[in-house]
Lab assay of single mutants.
Amino acid sequence: GSMEQGFLPKGWEVRHAPNGRPFFIDHNTKTTTWEDPRLKIPA
């Protein structure tokens, strides 16, 4: 929902695949990933 959306880094969006699995869109680089960007520790 909109709650989890608010925690994503700037430029990211979460969508759900037809099977219900969430995936993440990085509008900054125009890419998608199954990995939650929030789980990655910034270098």
Rank of each mutant, 00 (worst) to 15 (best):
E4G: 13
D26V: 00
P37S: 01
I25V: 10
K10H: 12
P22D: 07
Q5K: 11
G1D: 13
D36P: 07
E4C: 15
F23R: 01
N28S: 06
F24P: 03
M3Y: 13
V14Y: 02
L8E: 03
E35Y: 09
K10G: 09
T33Y: 07
D26S: 01
H16Y: 15
I41F: 12
T29N: 09
G20W: 00
A17I: 05
A17S: 09
D36E: 05
W34C: 06
I25N: 02
A17T: 14
E4M: 12
T32W: 15
F24E: 03
E13W: 00
E35T: 08
R38M: 06
D36S: 02
P37T: 01
L8P: 02
I41K: 11
F7E: 15
S2Q: 14
T33Q: 08
K30W: 06
G1T: 11
R21Q: 09
F24W: 11
E4L: 14
R15H: 08
G20Q: 04
H27F: 07
A43C: 15
K10A: 15
G1H: 11
G20S: 05
L8N: 02
L8T: 02
E4N: 11
E13A: 00
G6F: 10
G6L: 13
N28M: 06
I25E: 04
H16Q: 10
H16I: 15
L8S: 02
K30N: 15
I25A: 02
R38T: 07
G20H: 06
W12F: 03
P37G: 02
T31P: 01
P37I: 03
P42A: 11
K30R: 09
K10F: 12
K40N: 14
E4S: 13
P18R: 08
W12L: 01
H27M: 08
K10S: 13
H16V: 15
V14K: 08
V14I: 15
T29S: 08
N28I: 08
L8I: 05
P18A: 12
G1V: 11
R38E: 04
L8H: 02
T33R: 01
P42V: 12
H27G: 05
E35Q: 10
S2Y: 13
E4I: 14
V14A: 06
Q5R: 09
P9V: 05
V14P: 00
H27W: 13
Q5A: 11
A17L: 10
H16F: 15
Q5P: 11
I41M: 12
I41H: 14
H16A: 07
F23W: 08
P9S: 04
S2F: 13
E35H: 10
A17W: 05
G11K: 01
G11P: 01
P18K: 09
E4Q: 13
R38C: 07
R38N: 05
F24S: 00
F7T: 15
R15A: 10
P42Y: 10
R38K: 04
G6D: 12
T33S: 08
I25S: 04
Q5W: 11
L39K: 14
P18G: 08
D26I: 01
W12C: 02
Q5E: 12
G6A: 11
K30G: 15
I25R: 01
K30T: 06
T32M: 15
G11M: 02
P37M: 02
G1I: 12
N19K: 01
D36H: 04
F23T: 04
E35M: 09
M3W: 10
F24Q: 00
P42E: 12
P37H: 03
G1R: 03
L8A: 02
R21S: 06
E35D: 13
A43W: 10
I41Y: 14
P9D: 05
I25L: 07
E35W: 09
E4R: 09
L39Y: 11
T29E: 05
I25H: 04
E13S: 05
L39G: 14
T29L: 05
G1E: 11
T32I: 15
R15N: 06
P22A: 07
F23D: 04
I41D: 14
V14C: 14
A43T: 12
M3H: 11
W12N: 03
H27V: 08
R15K: 11
T29A: 05
G1L: 13
F23P: 01
S2E: 11
M3G: 11
G6M: 10
K40S: 15
I25D: 02
H16D: 07
P18H: 08
Q5L: 15
D36T: 00
A43N: 13
R21P: 05
H16E: 09
D26P: 00
H27K: 06
E35R: 09
H27P: 05
D36F: 02
P18F: 07
F7H: 15
E35A: 08
N19M: 02
R15D: 06
R38D: 04
I41Q: 14
R38F: 06
K40F: 14
S2W: 13
I41E: 14
T32S: 09
G11V: 00
N19A: 00
K30F: 07
G11Q: 02
I41C: 15
I25G: 02
G6R: 09
K30A: 14
E35F: 11
M3R: 12
N19V: 01
R15T: 07
W12M: 01
A17G: 09
K40A: 15
G6Y: 11
T33K: 02
T29R: 06
M3E: 11
N19C: 06
T29F: 04
K10P: 15
T29D: 03
H27T: 09
A43K: 10
P18Q: 09
R15Q: 10
N19P: 02
A43Q: 13
A43P: 13
L39M: 11
P42G: 11
P37L: 01
E13I: 02
F23H: 05
G6P: 10
A17N: 07
E4D: 13
P18L: 08
N19T: 05
D36M: 02
P42S: 10
M3S: 11
M3F: 13
D36N: 02
T32Q: 12
K40H: 15
F7N: 15
D36V: 00
E4A: 14
I25W: 06
T33M: 05
A43F: 12
D26A: 00
N28F: 07
T31L: 08
N28H: 06
N19L: 01
P22Y: 07
A43V: 13
T32R: 09
S2I: 13
H27Q: 06
L39S: 12
R21T: 10
P22G: 03
E13Q: 03
P42I: 10
G1S: 12
K10W: 10
W34L: 07
M3N: 11
A17C: 10
T33G: 02
E13V: 04
H27L: 08
L8R: 01
P22Q: 08
G20A: 02
D26H: 07
P22W: 05
G11W: 03
N28R: 04
W12T: 02
G20M: 03
E13T: 04
R15E: 06
H27N: 08
P18E: 10
E4V: 13
F23M: 08
E13Y: 04
R21W: 05
E4Y: 11
R15Y: 08
F7M: 15
H16W: 15
W34E: 05
I41N: 14
E4K: 10
P22M: 07
W12A: 00
G20V: 01
W34Q: 03
K10R: 10
T33A: 02
R38Q: 04
G11Y: 03
L39P: 09
P9C: 07
G11E: 03
L39H: 13
V14N: 01
L8K: 01
V14D: 02
T31G: 03
N28C: 12
I41V: 14
N19E: 04
P22N: 05
K40M: 14
F23C: 10
G1A: 12
L8Y: 04
P22E: 09
K10N: 11
F23E: 06
P9F: 05
P9H: 05
D26T: 00
P22F: 06
F24I: 01
I41A: 13
L39A: 13
I25Y: 13
A17D: 14
S2K: 11
N19Q: 03
L8W: 03
F24R: 00
T33F: 06
T31M: 08
A43D: 14
D36L: 01
F23I: 09
F7P: 15
E35V: 10
D36G: 01
F7G: 15
A43I: 12
F7V: 15
L39F: 10
G11D: 05
G6V: 12
T31E: 08
K10E: 14
T32G: 07
L39D: 12
L8V: 05
R21I: 09
P37D: 01
K40Y: 13
P22L: 09
E13D: 03
R21Y: 07
W34I: 04
T31Y: 07
F23N: 04
F23V: 08
K40I: 14
F23Y: 15
H16K: 09
R38L: 03
W34G: 03
D26G: 00
H27A: 03
G6Q: 10
N19D: 15
F24G: 00
T33E: 02
R38Y: 05
E4T: 12
R15W: 06
T31K: 07
L8Q: 01
A17F: 06
P18D: 08
T32P: 03
E35P: 00
